[in-house]
Amino acid sequence: MIPSIKARPAERADMPEVARFAAQLVRLHHALDPHRFMCLEPLEPGYERWLTRELENPDAVILVAERGGAEPALVGYAYGRREPRDWMSLRDASGVLHDIYVAEPARRLGAGAILLEAVIARLRDLGAPRVVLHTATQNAAGQRLFERFGFRRTMVEMTLEL
Rank of each mutant, 00 (worst) to 15 (best):
V18P: 08
L109R: 11
F37M: 10
V75Q: 04
V61N: 00
D33K: 07
V18C: 09
P129Y: 05
Y101M: 10
E161A: 15
V26S: 11
Q138Y: 08
T137V: 12
M15Y: 00
H98E: 13
V75W: 07
R20C: 04
M88Y: 11
V18G: 06
F151V: 02
P9K: 03
W50P: 01
A23E: 09
M158P: 04
A65T: 13
F151D: 05
L162H: 14
V119Y: 00
E56G: 11
W87M: 02
R124L: 10
L162N: 12
L126K: 04
R108V: 03
E157C: 02
G46W: 06
P129C: 06
Q138W: 09
H134C: 04
T135M: 00
A113F: 10
R152W: 01
L63M: 09
V64Q: 12
R8C: 11
A136C: 05
E56Y: 05
F149I: 13
G127I: 05
F146Y: 15
A78I: 07
A7R: 04
A23Q: 11
R20D: 07
A118Y: 06
S4P: 11
R20E: 10
L162E: 14
H98P: 01
Q24Y: 11
R81H: 10
F151P: 00
R107M: 07
V156E: 00
D86G: 00
G112E: 08
N139D: 10
T137G: 12
A121N: 04
W87Q: 07
E54H: 06
L51V: 02
E117K: 15
H30V: 06
I5Y: 04
F151R: 01
F149P: 05
E83G: 03
L40S: 14
R67F: 00
T159Y: 07
T154M: 11
L43T: 12
A140K: 13
D92T: 14
A136V: 09
V64T: 10
G69R: 08
E117N: 12
R144Q: 13
T159W: 05
I2C: 10
G69L: 09
L116A: 07
L55A: 06
A31Q: 14
R148K: 15
E41G: 07
M38V: 15
